[in-house]
Computed example of a mutant assay.
Amino acid sequence: MDVNEQLITVKIEDIAFGGDGVGRLADGRIVFVPYTAVGDVARVRVVRQQRRHARGEVEELLTPGPARIEPPCAYYGTCDGCCYQHIDAAAALSHKTQQLQEILQRIGGIADVPDVDPVVASPQPYGYRNKLKLRRSGKGYGYLAADNRTVVPIERCEIAASAINEALAAARPTLRDETVTFRVDATGSVHHYGDTGTDALWLTELLGDANMMVPLTGFCQVNPAVGSQLVDWVRQQFAATPTTHLIDLYAGVGVFAIVLAAVAESVCAVESQAAAVAAAKANAEARGLQNIAFVERRIDRNLSEVFEGCDAAATTIVLDPPRQGCGRGVIEKIAQFAPHRLIYVSCNAATLARDVRTLTAAMALERLALFDMFPQTAHFESVAVFRALP
């Protein structure tokens, strides 16, 4: 009988990077089953097969695993955003820690991955997001389902700040664009914009003890409480073994450049978005900082020029790229330059691991941290600290 025509009893043994439960079919192949927890025993229907693995869907949960809890969201299981709501917080953080180490071994090629520093959990497991982007469907605004096509209309989002949910309810009758984005800043002000937004409006974000101006459509961590702890951790790492020169790549509105400028003698902050550079300069000027040079340019073009005249042994690079990572050309240039230290901040462990494989030709991974920036989801923020090989 074709395996697709029968229900199979599966025990979940692990949680894979991305959030799917991992079990075994009778023939030994791995089967990935979403919305499961370790220890779950379920009747599973196999919906897709490949030579080495398969995908299944839970038809019936027979025995819940010890870490399984009741998810509070009405859209859980249809909206594809939060895949960990059914797993208690301690178990979820344990899974994410293991996933980070395993992906650095498997993709990054690091045989001896250092232990992860004690995980920085989010003070708020729900209601933490200061930004929400929704898509329009015929029935309202919502998130994409697992098929990446269907929009699941929502009335509220459990991980969004309460001010955003209130603003969404009030604005709903007037919304017309294909997408709508809501943001709440540190002052409690809520703004929303449609398919296009204006960067003439700047928001105030609080990271640590410092207010930062951020353009309306600009990047800022969506979980300010965890973002502040991440910035402080990076500051401590730099202060522990400071260098005279700091290069901040993908600098955004200058958060790392400004926080670390108190320790470094000189800072070069490189960012491609003009509005972000303008905000970064304003943030530095508000603090009276004179030792930061802001450069508006794409990181992947002529990066060697940024390194010209720099003593690698006296330079630290802070790297905070977007989810897609740096790209091979950028990482190769950094590896060739081989700074004294590299602090790589990443929101995607897979692209971090890909970039690490190139970096390790010239640098050694010496410290690793994980920040639960996105509770209830499969995502997390990590920081990898490298030192130049002798």
Score class of each variant (00 low, 15 high):
34 P>H: 15
348 N>S: 09
91 A>E: 15
133 K>E: 13
8 I>D: 08
244 T>G: 12
304 S>C: 09
106 R>Q: 13
305 E>Q: 15
281 K>Q: 06
42 A>L: 08
200 A>W: 11
136 R>S: 11
221 Q>W: 02
94 S>N: 13
301 R>T: 12
105 Q>R: 12
155 E>G: 14
381 E>R: 00
34 P>R: 13
328 R>H: 14
175 L>V: 12
45 R>A: 08
123 P>I: 07
337 F>M: 02
302 N>T: 08
374 F>P: 07
312 A>S: 10
32 F>G: 13
131 K>R: 15
208 G>E: 05
314 A>T: 13
259 V>M: 11
150 T>K: 10
372 D>R: 08
37 A>L: 11
138 G>M: 03
307 F>I: 05
258 I>C: 06
92 A>M: 01
200 A>Y: 01
323 R>L: 04
356 V>F: 00
67 A>S: 15
191 H>E: 14
67 A>K: 10
19 G>E: 04
265 E>D: 14
254 G>S: 12
67 A>L: 12
257 A>F: 05
363 M>P: 00
285 E>W: 00
95 H>D: 12
146 A>G: 06
268 C>P: 05
294 F>H: 03
13 E>I: 04
192 H>F: 07
291 N>F: 12
220 C>Q: 14
347 C>T: 00
196 T>S: 13
386 F>L: 07
117 D>W: 13
45 R>N: 02
221 Q>C: 05
244 T>W: 10
49 Q>T: 15
163 A>Y: 03
335 A>R: 04
382 S>N: 14
112 D>H: 14
294 F>R: 02
217 T>W: 03
145 A>P: 09
45 R>G: 08
231 V>P: 04
31 V>D: 06
39 G>K: 00
141 Y>D: 09
190 V>F: 08
154 I>D: 05
335 A>M: 04
161 A>R: 03
109 G>K: 06
